[in-house]
Design a protein around this nucleic acid. Structure first.
Lengths: 383, 383
DNA sequence: CTAATTTCTGCAAGCGCTTTCAAAAAAGGG
DNA sequence: CCCTTTTTTGAAAGCGCTTGCAGAAATTAG
C-alpha cells in the first residue's frame, strides 16, 4: 500500500529512523522495508519455480526478444516457422508476460480501478460482478478496492489506484466532496455512479432517487394507505436524503400531513431497520404501511413487525428500495423499487470503455420501476 | 487480460492477421492491439494532468533520483534539508510512485491474488472483506478476481494473477482438480480455503463439512425429528457432497433409515432451495424438519414452505449452513451452522502473510458451532 | 540472374524505479 | 588543523518488455 503522499502534513524523515513510524504515519510502511532482503535473482524465492521471462522464451526459440514480443502482441507478422518455435517455447516454459513490465513499457496499465464502499454488501456485490463481466469482454481488467464509506479510506484507495496508474476510475457512490472529485477527474478518466456531480470531465450515472422514492410512496398512497412510516438511511448519504425527500414530496402531493413520528433513523443495514421499526411500534405510533430507504432496512423492519405480531401485508404493507436478489425470497417476497444494479454496473463499465477508447459515453439512463410483490396490499377498510 | 498461453492448443499467428482472432482464441486480444497508438509521451492522454515521475521530483528538489527513492523507501538516511525539499516537491507535484516500475525494479509485487467464485455472493463477500482488512494492515494489497465456479474461468484468473506476478494466491473453494493445485503451488505460495488438498506446499484452511453437517442433523434429531428433508448443494462441489455425507452419517448413527425421497437437489442459491422444497412438498413426502446445504438454499426452502402454508417452525423446522449475516433477519431468524466466514478470510490472509514473510503458518482451526435461532423447535407430538 | 520491393528480424534505447558502488561530505579524533 | 571513520549522495546498471530504425531475407519484377 503506497503511502499517501499527496495529502498528510509535511512530515519528513529525520535521522533516527525508528521514530518515523510513529510520528509520520505515511512513512511507516517504508521503515519496515529497511529490512527488505536484497533483490531476488529474478525468482520468487529459491523454493518456487523460477520465473520465466520473455528473453528466456526468445533464447529457447532461437529468436530475439523483439520477435517474441511482436508475436505476442500481433504488432508485426512473424515467419511461420519461428512462430511455431516461439509458441512451443512459451508452452514448454509456461511463460506468462510480466504485466508490470508491460505497463511500464507501454505506458499504460490496461486496468481500471473500481472503488466500492463495501465488498461484502449485496448491493455493491451485484455492481462489481456486472463491471467485472463487462470489462472481461474488453482489454481492461478491474482492480477492486473499498472505501467503507470513509473519506479517508476512499482517498487511500484512490492513491493506491493512481499509484498503479489505472487507466480510469469508477467510483460507486463516492463519499468525497465534489471539489475533490473534480480535481480527481483532472488526473484520470472518471465515472461516478449513484451521485451526480456537474463538471466537465465527470461522467455521472445515476437515476433520480427522489423521483424513485416518490414513485414508491405514491404506490402506497394509491393503495389507500395514509399513515406511511419511513425508515431513513444514513443522514450523510446524499441518496438517502433524496429518498427521504421523495417520500415527503409524495405526501405533500397528496395533501397528507407529514408527521415526524412516522420517521425513524436507520443506517441502510438490517439492524438499523429493525431497531428503528421496533422503536416506532413501541412508541405507539400507528401506521398501515412502511417504506424503507433500502431493502436491507426493509428486511429488518419486517422482522420487527413479525416480532410484534404484525403481519405483512395483513397489518402493514412494506416497500423497500434496491431490489436486491434476496428480496424475491423474503417472507413475504418484498415489493421494492427496482433499479437494476447490474445494469448500472454494466453501464458504468461501458461508459469507461467508451471514454478510454476516445468515444464520448452515451448516457444510458437506467430506468427505475417498482417490483410489486407480496409485501403490500390495498387497504380496504379505514387505515 | 493476458491471453492464456500456458494452455490452449498451439495456435500460431499466420500472415493475414485478421484470421487470428477467430482461429486462435488466445491471440484475439492481441490482434486488436495492432491499432494501438504509439507510445504516449509519459502522459495519460493529452487531456489529463501529466503523470509525475520520481525523476521530476528529484529535479524539482535539486537532488538525484536515488535520494528521492531512498527517502521514500527509508532505505538510507537523508539529510534533513534535502528530505524537506523532496517532500515539498512530492506534495507540490502530487507525486505517487508508479507501482509497476516499483514491482519491476524490486522484483516483487507486494500484492496477493484472491480468487473468489462470485463477487456478488454474500458468503464470499464476507470473506473478501476480511481478507482485505487483514491485508491492509500488512505491506500487501489484494487483487480480487472471480472464477464463477468454472474451471476455465478460474484458470484464466490464475493466469492473470501470475502474469501480475502476485506474491501469493488465496483460492476460495477452488473447483480445479487437485493435480492442478499442486502444480500451481510450485509456482507461487498458495493458500486454500474450503477444501483440503494434501500436498507439501499447499496450506488448506478448512473446517470439516461432514462433521458440521452431522452436528446440525443431530441437533434436529435431538429435538425429536425423524423425518428430516435435505436440500443438497451442487453435485460437483466437494463441500456440498461432504455436507450430504454428514447428513447421512447422522441418520445412520441414530438408526434412522435414509430415504431418497427426502433429498432434493439444490444449487446453493435461493432459487434452487425453493424449487427443490416445492417439489418435495408437492410430491407428498412428509417431513417435520429440513436441513439445507447452505443458508441461501434455506431461504428458498422457507419461502416454499410459506407458499404451501406450512409454518416455520410450527410445521417444519429449518436449519441452514453458513450463517450469513442475513440469517439473523430472516423470518423467522434462521438456525444455522455458524462458521465465521470472516474468521476464515482473516485466517487465510494471516497464513499468507506468514508464508510470505518466511514463517510457517500456524494452523488456526476455525471452530464451527450451531447458531440456534427461531426456525427450529422441539417436536412434542409424534413426527 | 540482378535489382527493386516488400517482409521479417535484431539492435538498442527507453519506461520509472531500485540498488550497488564508489566518491563526496560531515563528523570525530589527536 | 590534518587524517580516519561514518554518513550522504550520485552515477549507472539493471528489472522485463515494447518499439523505432535499419539491416537481412524473401519475393517480385525486369
Amino acid at each position: 500500500m503506497a503511502a499517501s503522499w499527496t495529502r498528510g502534513h509535511g512530515g519528513r524523515t529525520g535521522r533516527p529512523r525508528r521514530e518515523l513510524g510513529s510520528t509520520y504515519p505515511g512513512i511507516l510502511t517504508l521503515v519496515r522495508n529497511v529490512r527488505r532482503p536484497a533483490r531476488l535473482p529474478a525468482s520468487r524465492g529459491a523454493e518456487h519455480d523460477p520465473v520465466v521471462t520473455l528473453e528466456m522464451v526468445a533464447r529457447e526459440a532461437g529468436v530475439s526478444p523483439s520477435t517474441v514480443s511482436r508475436l505476442l502482441n500481433g504488432t508485426a507478422s512473424v515467419r511461420e516457422s519461428k512462430a511455431r518455435a516461439i509458441e512451443a517455447a512459451i508452452a514448454k516454459l509456461k511463460f506468462l508476460p510480466n504485466s508490470a513490465a508491460q505497463s511500464l513499457a507501454r505506458g499504460r496499465s490496461m486496468s481500471v480501478g473500481v472503488v466500492t464502499q463495501s465488498v461484502s454488501s449485496p448491493f455493491y456485490g451485484e455492481a462489481l460482478a456486472a463491471i467485472e463481466s463487462r470489462l472481461l469482454r474488453s482489454d481492461y481488467s478491474p482492480l477492486f478496492v473499498s472505501g467503507h464509506w470513509r473519506p479517508a479510506d476512499e482517498r487511500r484507495c484512490l492513491d493506491h489506484l493512481l499509484s498503479r496508474r489505472v487507466s480510469g476510475v469508477i467510483l460507486l457512490t463516492s463519499c468525497l466532496p465534489d471539489a475533490e472529485l473534480v480535481a480527481l477527474a483532472e488526473r484520470v478518466p472518471l465515472i461516478l455512479t449513484g451521485r451526480r456531480v456537474a463538471a466537465k470531465r465527470i461522467y455521472s450515472l445515476d437515476h433520480d432517487n427522489t423521483e424513485s422514492a416518490l414513485l414508491a410512496t405514491e404506490f402506497l398512497i394509491g393503495q389507500g394507505h395514509r399513515r406511511i412510516a419511513f425508515v431513513r438511511g444514513p443522514q450523510d448519504h446524499p441518496d438517502a436524503e433524496q429518498r427521504f425527500a421523495g417520500y415527503r414530496a409524495a405526501l405533500a402531493a397528496h395533501r397528507i400531513a407529514f408527521s415526524a413520528d412516522l420517521v425513524a433513523d436507520g443506517n441502510y443495514i438490517d439492524e438499523g431497520g429493525y431497531t428503528a421499526t421496533l422503536r416506532m411500534i413501541d412508541s405507539g405510533v400507528r401506521f398501515t404501511a412502511l417504506f424503507a430507504a433500502n431493502d436491507q432496512s426493509a428486511y429488518g423492519a419486517m422482522l420487527a413487525l413479525y416480532r410484534r405480531g404484525l403481519g405483512v401485508p395483513a397489518d402493514v404493507s412494506v416497500v423497500g428500495f434496491d431490489d436486491l436478489p434476496a428480496s424475491q425470497y423474503t417472507i413475504p417476497p418484498l415489493t421494492t423499487v427496482h433499479r437494476s444494479i447490474d445494469r448500472i454496473g454494466e453501464a458504468a463499465a461501458e461508459a469507461m470503455i467508451d471514454l478510454l477508447e476516445g468515444r464520448i459515453p452515451t448516457q444510458r439512463s437506467s430506468s427505475v420501476t417498482l417490483a410489486i410483490r407480496e409485501s403490500t396490499r390495498r387497504l380496504t377498510a379505514a387505515g
